[in-house]
Design a binder for these strands. Sequence first.
RNA 1: GGGUGAUUAGCUCAGUUGGCUAGAGCACUUCUCUUACAAAGAAGGGGUCACUGGUUCGAGUCCAGUAUCACCCACCA
Length: 885
Amino acid sequence: MNKELPKIYEPQKVEDEIYARWEQSRCFQPEAGQPLADNLDKRETYCNVLPPPNANGELHIGHASGYTVMDIFGRYARMNGKKTLLLPGKDHAGIQTQVVFEKKLLAEQGLSRQEIGRENFYKKTYEFCIDRANYMRSQEKKIGISADWSREKFTLDPDVLKIAMETFVKMHEDGLIYKGKRIINWCPRCSTALSDVEVLHKETPGKLYFIKYPLENSTEFITVATTRPETMLGDTAVAVNPKDKRYLKLIGKNIVLPLQNTIIPIIADKRIDLSFGTGAVKITPAHDPLDWQIGKDHNLEEIQIIDEKAAITELGGKYAGLTAHVAREEVLKDLEKLNLLEKVEELAHSISICERCKTIIEPLTSSQWFINVDAKNFSLKKKAIEAIKKNEIEIFPNNFQKILIDWFENMRDWCISRQIWWGPQFPVWYRTNSQLTTDNSQQEPEMYVGLTPPEGEGWVQDENTFDTWFTSGQWAYTTLKSKEGDFGMFYPSDTMVMGRDLLFFWSSRMIMMSLYTTGKIPFKNLFYTGLVLDKEGHKFSKSRGNGIDPLTVIDKFGADALRMSLVMDSAPGQNSRLYEEKIETFRNFANKLWNISRFCLSQENFKLVKTISKEDIKTPADAWIINCLDKTTIEIDKLFANKQISVAADILKSFTWNDFADWYLEINKIEKNQKVLGYVLDKLLRLWHPFMPFITEHIWTLAKQEKMLIISAWPKSNPELCSNIEAREFEAIQNIITTIRNVRTENKIELGKKITITINSKNEKLLKTFQSEFQEDILKRLKTGIETIGYNKSEEELKDEIKRTLGEINLYIHLADAIDTEKETARIKKEIANLEGFIAGLAGRLADKNFTSKAPTQIINQQKETLAKKQAELSELQKHLDSLS
RNA sequence: GGGUGAUUAGCUCAGUUGGCUAGAGCACUUCUCUUACAAAGAAGGGGUCACUGGUUCGAGUCCAGUAUCACCCACCA
């Protein structure tokens, strides 16, 4: 039977078919009627709203990493009989998608978005996203994620969007949203405002220009230092620190601003650093965030001299129309002509760039929409901090809690309006009432905020679109609210898994928005994954060309191998590295599991066994493996509770390979116990399923199981089965076998050469175990080359043999040739020295009153036991040494 | 300027209430195609757990400091 199974597991041939079967069975869908795990219906639920990837590209290895973690938790929950929902989705990803699609449009059709118009651009981008979403969904399935595709959501789906817009309206009513003219980060390429988190800072070598500003009615100067000389066209003051003695007498005096020839004051402000530059700072309120603040506090005029295309405005006089970059050169040239450029120094400083297109940010004053994150009636950030501090959301790894709280504490108002086209438009309309207008420029238009356009003529919708994080920040509930019943059943969800790079962008916004809208936390557990890096520890990037395509990997090694290589040997929040050799080792492991199963399935009358009784445990090896299995099961559950899935997989791997395959399978070739074999394999497949769903389901099917593994019950520890089990007998056998193999290798005895051994022990019960026919068979056949076994012979008789002490056993190995006394003596002496050192330490500790009075008795007893054991060993070694000399 | 993480075998990394002489994979050495598996098996070698102090009966694990690296934040004109 099953002789036809290939020697090598071929994932490519089975994975798609298995996934299709899962989908058809509707086991991803938590409806009534969904097949449940072995009829366990605890009415408990488990939900993970999956982070929606940006629907503008393809899946990368980072997605695969997150999905694997989510799927492992999801499958674990499902097998534990919970009603499980993994809810997938896609994000329209405002700016990023617009940048991607604009590039595509230009490359393929040579068109800009302006050329095709806003409406058409939106429609085309929408189609593009849907297309990408379809492709990405197929990739997600390849990874094996057990998500309910019937519930898949897109951030622009009308139902999702409606809920998000309702939030806007409500926040506006509650006074949490305001429109105001403030200084914001402006990306000239994207033509939009950006929030603080969408701006990156890059350390760049630059220059610090020292410019002399002439004092009014004087021949004196005050020298200011700046990295952006062109902004002087918009200067409205020079500021110094009030404690700066150098400039005390100048405070309150005026300056004639060069090039512009306007009169501006010298003011004092404590935010000015005395030690930087000259200690005197030119103030350009319209183009620098700090200057803007200072300008506000000192009632300075804001003169916008750079426009939204990064060009100089008409207020810039003769420089109008030049780009800021060119203007800088011109300004410097002119200053030099006037002899006002004192000096230029090299300076490393950080410049702001757009996160998406890397263009240098222009700080501008602009009219934008903001969320007040610290409003009096509902402080979003304080509520978030409170929830986190009260551990309502458990964060893995735990130290990220502090990072998140710190971030919230320093959070400033959130700019949510963007001037891009790709994204939902603000549900805000304006109308200018011409009848009342007496002075056009001063008239504030009438404003309407609501879900649908207002009645009447002349309303024009606000052109702003939403920051993409405004909609994805509501993902935790918009997704669940769009299907009747889901919200009540699954909100707040259990788990949220995301890359640590999304900590500020996304987790923070979800927590705030959810607390505001639902009054509850969005999820109970927040799990951050680290970044996946390449072999050298670099980030994957297109420019570096070091990307690993998940599909290529899956095609080559199988989805299970990829999954394993993404979760093993990694800790929550910690970066990890991925490379082919690593994936290969897990491909090898999958193959090991395959061959283990192949062996089992090829046994006569083999079948998977769900339960066994004590009577089925017949031999020391049976008892031992059942005991190992039980311990492993308990440990894995504990680790799952702590979200330590990497460690869980690790101990399971060690059980599978080192215990079950290397020992139990070998024993089973000699003394067969198909029931125990079937029982262990049954549990093994279940335990591995969350990690390696495809191969386990495949084997499960080959073993002719009616019900699919994905909905089979998670193994439980069986203390009843393990009570009074004596695993030590088998451990003694293992010990003897290993020791003999070791001695053979050490003494270079060929495998073909048979040897005679003697086992001496005072423990009659133990001896009796060995003396059974089967156990002798095991000892002989497990690569030991034993021919005959003797028991309890006299020391005298054995004095020329190699002796090893293994706990209660003295093992003697008779070699045909005389033993190398010198070598053996040296070996024993070394071991004695080692042992004596250890015993001395242990004995010392046990003699120490401090230790015996303070340490728990359990530890003391343990150490006493060890001491006795080691002392016995030592005396055996010494006896042996004496007999050799 | 502030923060976080890392530092454990040649390499990549685990090690969560502190407790026997610190683990894995890869690489390395020697041997084996033994019928589940050479993508394998057997036996090995290899570590003052970055450094310095402290707490403790006991520290890779907790605390303080130092060094190096990485990342993040920041209104460094």
